[in-house]
Design a protein around this nucleic acid. Structure first.
Lengths: 209, 209, 209, 209
DNA sequence: TATGAATGAGATTTCATTCAT
DNA sequence: AATGAATGAAATCTCATTCAT
């Protein structure tokens, strides 16, 4: 009634639908969300959803892709690739966490939902895998004298896992962005020397027997 | 005559049901699992399931609790609390990862399921929170001269996140337990000095420009 | 309410459902019939239909099979296989048409429905094919001096087609059973000598110019 | 600019639509065919379909009528009405079967569809009725000394049924046109003396016991 | 104690059909 | 004359859950 049963160009409607879908999926989860609910939120009829997106699964996929795209774009454009390594790292981590912070509902929940929902675990896993590879390469290239048997990839897995956990804390508002950023930066930095044996000497020194 | 198949003591029936439920939930996920399927697997009738556990949600909760309990018990009993800190850490990490490795199907999948399903995110989050607190306390007590503003809890969040990520890799068979353990131990150890400012000095030295 | 939401043994419910399904399918046709309508007619809930028969298609298949079985049984038991050929033919044709006459709604309409419904054309065609083969063999064995190139099978096709058409007339009440039987018997009998050339001589004699 | 693609004269458009509709209906059946599919095949928009034909049912009716008309025209124009009865019969049967043979897809399938779909059984039945009447009149006029109680119409029903069955065989490619024609001609010819008593004498002679 | 029988409620999806331009 | 945009209505099917025995 208030909203609009008006004729809208396809592109506009698409966004309108995705907005609604992201909103509802985020709040209720994939399974608990009905197409009816999304249609209602978007103030359109259910058949439109199917006309535009084919199925609930595809609709969710479209949500995922849009949010993923936005995330990548935003983060990418806020990283200062010309800066020195540590500064670059700082801008990257900050861009990442700030995006999470600013898009709590939509992104983290979509992300969480997708991780579980069997049909999308795949997509998320792939995305994560790419990030892990990236981080792995950064670690490798950033380490001056790598031990021969250093498993940079597993280290990357750990760091990305840590990043996700921190991001989750940020997304729930339970952690301060700046503080979280500082910690992540440090952790990554440490990761660069985290290869097994190498670290022991220095680290142990500061620690209670 | 007409009645039931076999009279079994309550405790046995309960386990029989949980075994079946864990099995099916693990394979198919929470939403894709029907009570019918569980009843069939347990070779009992659906009303029994409801008699014992009240609802699908409660049944899943019971699965979760049992598996969580087993996990905690097993890990606990394999940690050498009398050992020196680093050795204690080693036994803990190994116990953790070995459990994961030995119970791939049941635990990690249940865990993943629970994380998503809105109704249980709660339970999992609580469990994780307890672990994070524990790790946080360990960090605090393990650090000789803590900086005043060190946020041990957030560091614990990161480390636990890293641990989960690694555990996930182990559970899929994509990472070797021993290697993963070594890496986690190192990471935690480093975590002890991961408080912002303190680390910079040493770490930077090994790193490119 | 009036009918019965009572507990019934499986076998009884099955028949009750099939009765309802046959009734409604017959009146409305396969596509125009909804499972809701059948459930209502059977005075049970829709899930029962699915519990017992799995899908609309399978339900229809079950109807088809039951009616087909009844038809075959009834007709078979009314044929006098010990009689002389012509008498045997007579009993067979009468049994066939009388069944049709007595079961107008159920059988003929089911038959018609099935013929069309893509998914069952198959079943019906097979059944018809068997009858055609049977008739073909009868023709062959009944003809004393068959012409070498006589296509008994195609003749059987024609005779069965004629039989179906007549049966259809009977089922709508537009033809008298006894008269129809006599005609069919004659036609079949003639069919026995219907091989092309053979007939010409006699037939032409009775015909104008 | 925004508007329509091409302005075509009404008659052309109509044929274009019917062509598409016949094609799709034939392949998929009435129920399985969507207006969308037809519009797509005709390369026009759905509202056009509705503008020209009002509803799916009417569109199918139009298809049926056009095909029926073509069929009648074609067959009619190939019958040699001036020939002697038997030759006339031959030309008629051949015209009929040749048309079927040449228009397998369109006609027989449409015909089958129509027979079932409740809404069109009517139309088909009427058409068949006209043919039956025609054949009945031919039988009557062709029989020199008809028995008083001979039911020529029912005989016509049988013969037309036989004709349909044979035609169906031809349409599936399972019967040769010429052979089928010869058989049909013979059957019709025999039908002329198919009145009960008359036939017995001759026929029995050729038959076993 | 144990279960076969039964269902209310709701999910996804598909169409024929119509506005507004 | 022609169409992209939009929908009401309904159909199939599934599932957690409960009686009645």
């Amino acid at each position: 009634m208030a909203g609009g049963t008006k004729r809208l160009p396809r592109a506009v409607r698409e966004q309108q639908m995705l907005d609604a879908a992201v909103e509802i999926f985020s709040v209720n989860g994939y399974h608990e969300t009905s197409m009816d609910a999304i249609a209602a939120e978007a103030q359109i009829s259910k058949p439109m959803l199917y006309l535009y997106y084919g199925s609930k699964e595809e609709l969710f996929g479209a949500c995922l892709n849009r949010e993923l795209g936005r995330f990548v774009d935003e983060v990418n454009s806020n990283i200062d690739f010309s800066a020195a390594p540590k500064e670059l790292l700082r801008t990257a981590v900050l861009a990442f966490l700030k995006y999470i912070d600013a898009n709590r509902a939509s992104w983290m929940v979509l992300y969480t939902q997708a991780t579980s929902s069997q049909a999308f675990a795949h997509t998320v896993r792939e995305g994560r895998e790419r990030i892990i590879e990236l981080v792995g390469r950064l670690l490798r290239s950033g380490t001056k004298f790598p031990e021969p048997d250093t498993d940079f990839e597993l280290m990357a897995v750990a760091l990305v896992g840590a990043g996700e956990a921190i991001a989750s804390r940020v997304s729930t508002g339970d952690a301060d962005v700046d503080e979280a950023a500082e910690l992540m930066i440090n952790l990554f930095w440490l990761g660069l020397k985290g290869a097994p044996s190498a670290a022991d000497v220095d680290a142990t020194a500061v620690i209670s027997s």
